[in-house]
Design a protein around this nucleic acid. Structure first.
Length: 429
RNA sequence: GGCAGGUUGCCCGAGCGGCCAAUGGGAGCGGACUGUAAAUCCGUCGGCUUUGCCUUCGAAGGUUCGAAUCCUUCACCUGCCA
């Protein structure tokens, strides 16, 4: 083993991870602690390119990797060009295979999303790896002899996801074999780079321990592992869904404004957990926020801190400041007409705005559709009928209403709102 | 390969010749109450040029004045038998 650089490690790391609730499962904790306090541990965490962007769940892993690196350990971030071609089995059924070009493109995008969070310099510099590098040239015979031989099918069948899939209608051999690939990754990184720790989401625990087991069987080596918890709401349902779907980190797939709003709307019961998992605020800072929140929940101090810190991590301080200003303007509760034109314009720009010419002003229903506030005219009409459509914070009653010059605020803006918190702007030229 | 059952709207699941754009539940959306929270209650929930029209009930044909509902073929899934 080529372990042990001169990097000094933070002995409180494991306690901090535990306090943050990041250890849902782990291999022997005392052994893990011993490893993490004695020297810089080379660890890996993998991301499969199953979409053009990573999402909220992946962010947990990215931030955890950074916590480990900050504590002196050495990251290997794996983007699965190979595993992404196969697909990790999930309860919702067989995945559709993506072609090689698509996967290759997504690998590039996912790498670019991870890189800003890690440091690629210094003694414990991070390394990006791709499992295509050690699988592309592997022959089927070698794979079956060297890897497959270590996997008893009865054990594979006993895995929860596989069991559920067998009951729910079956699983292809392709997805059934996924665990072999991910396990092989751990072994490959162990052999090539001396990686001895893997972590991932708790839904990956079976794959992770599969790797540790393979290292033991194939090399007689010891590997460590832990899993972060699945993020759920207080009612037990999965987090990470909002209006449209997943919470993407890519600003073109989810606007930073919408991302910020998601955090600002986190339910009280989850704020504490979220602050611990998704921010680098210290224990003292978080406990102070919790105290404030418990005392005066209506101030929403927890949600505000969460939204600010997480949005800053993902989209930067400049963008976050813009969004905060926009939110203050839109949710301020004051008369829209009192806002300065440029303030209003900037706010609506964050929330999402379109431009129309004064001579071709559409009806309120069409404006709702064009701004994306409603998915169809029927939905827009329904919003009006239900009293959920507002122009400049005043309820609109007539679906066919066409805004005129008197409705402009801030010089040349229309402020559309659906329900309590969905705003869009229309710039009239 | 044989036999039986299944494939319904975002999800689950009724319907079994007209009264079906299709019961019910969940999710979503809106309203009320709030703190841009939770819980609760109410409403809504295919599309449109909206008293009507169009497209949906695995796919393609067919029977019928008329089908998600009947028939034929195909695809996929499940179970039983080889």
């Amino acid at each position: 083993m080529t372990e042990g650089t001169s990097v000094s490690v933070d002995p409180t790391l494991l306690d901090d991870l535990q306090w943050r609730g990041l250890l849902a499962h782990s291999t022997d904790l005392d052994v893990l602690r011993e490893a993490l306090t004695s020297s810089s541990v080379r660890f890996y965490v993998g991301f499969d390119p199953t979409a053009p962007s990573l999402h909220l769940g992946n962010l947990v892993q990215i931030l955890t990797a950074k916590r480990l690196q900050d504590a002196g350990h050495t990251p290997f971030a794996l983007v699965g060009g190979a595993t992404g071609m196969i697909g990790d089995p999930r309860d919702s059924g067989e995945r559709t295979l993506n072609d090689a070009d698509t996967v290759a493109e997504w690998v590039g995008r996912v790498r670019a999303q991870i890189e800003p969070f890690l440091s690629f310099e210094g003694e414990n510099a991070a390394t990006m790896v791709n499992n295509l590098d050690w699988t592309a040239g592997l022959s089927t015979i070698d794979f079956l002899r060297d890897i497959g031989k270590h996997f008893p099918v009865n054990r594979m069948l006993a895995r929860d996801t596989v069991k559920r899939r067998l009951e729910a209608g079956g699983i292809s051999y392709t997805e059934f074999s996924y665990v072999l690939l991910q396990s092989m990754d751990f072994l490959a990184l162990y052999r090539q780079h001396g990686v001895t720790l893997q972590f991932g989401g708790s839904d990956q625990w079976g794959n992770i321990t599969g790797g540790a087991e393979l290292i033991r069987r194939a090399e007689g080596g010891t590997a460590h592992a832990f899993a972060t918890p699945l993020i759920t709401k207080s009612d037990g349902t999965k987090y990470g869904k909002t209006e449209g779907g997943a919470l993407w980190l890519d600003p073109s797939m989810m606007s930073p404004y919408a991302f910020f709003q998601f955090w600002l709307n986190v339910e009280d019961a989850s704020v504490s957990e979220m602050l611990r998992i998704f921010t680098f605020l210290s224990r003292a800072e978080i406990e102070e926020i919790e105290a404030t929140h418990a005392e005066k929940p209506f101030l929403r101090a927890g949600q505000k801190a969460l939204a600010e810190h997480v949005t800053t991590l993902v989209h930067g301080a400049v963008e976050t400041a813009r969004i905060q200003a926009a939110s203050a303007a839109l949710f301020g509760g004051g008369d829209m007409a009192d806002l300065a034109g440029d303030t209003l314009g900037a706010a609506l720009g964050e929330a999402g705005a379109i431009t129309v010419s004064a001579g071709e002003m559409p009806s309120i229903v069409d404006l709702f559709v064009e701004t994306g506030l409603a998915a169809s005219k029927g939905e827009a009409r329904r919003a009006v009928k239900e009293g959920g459509a507002y122009l400049n914070n005043e309820r609109v009653r007539d679906a066919d209403f066409v805004p005129g010059p008197d409705d402009l605020v801030g010089g040349h803006w229309l402020v559309l709102r659906k329900g309590k918190k969905s705003f869009r702007g229309v710039e009239v030229s």
